[in-house]
Amino acid sequence: MPALSSGPAVAFEQVGKHYGDAAAIDGVSLTIAAGTFVALVGASGSGKSTLLKTVNRLVVPDRGRVLLDARDVADGPAPALRRRIGYVFQDVGLFPHLSVAENIALPLRLAGTPDAAHAMAMLDLVELPRAVATRMPAELSGGQRQRVGVARALVTRPGLLLMDEPFGALDPVTRESLAGAVKRLHDELALTTIMVTHDMAEALLLATRVIVMAAGRVVADEPPAALLAGAGGTAAQALVAVPRAQATRLAALST
């Protein structure tokens, strides 16, 4: 892997988004330092996905703005912005009419810098055998598909990786393995990563900063250790209680 990228800092300034009368995001302000791995945690409808998508303009906020290294994402055309940002989501969205290699190489084609060898190297990076390059997406397992999704998202060497429930549809073993791979990529590529998840355990284990959302607002913003130590308020602690209780029960079973 040549020249490691260093991710941008991300800032949300009073970002709001309404659907009809309902506020999906209600005036969120955050600053995320370059190189952070942030987990956005919350129940369904808490606004975490909507907030994530304001970064690559899949959602356009009604008010406020989002800055990448102090530059407003709303400046310039959306496709140019999105080519600088890796995006991985639960349904993966591999192009079913293209082979694995073509899927991974497509962002390079869009950028006008096709590089088949680099696309193949991405397979190594996400720990897939090169033999899958010629396969069609329908021939892959769910875990393999999401690995291809990650490879496609990172092939243009973006500094920022957005992930929306990236492991939500995977079995626990695959999930664990892929989460490890993502964490490693985050470190190796010096990415800024924002991951949306409803799984507090996943957030605590992967992220360096956990932001809890409820009803479109940020209700807690702590490092994992602080959350485990009881910080962040009741909503956050209710979420932390679930994996903790599970861990306790598991420990009780083994004694």
Binding site: N56, P79, Y87, F89, V92
Partner: peptide, 18 residues
Amino acid sequence: LDPAVLEAADGIGMTRAQ
């Protein structure tokens, strides 16, 4: 068409024509 595929197309920065 599968909405996920269209979201991916937008997500990787395709223009409408692409």
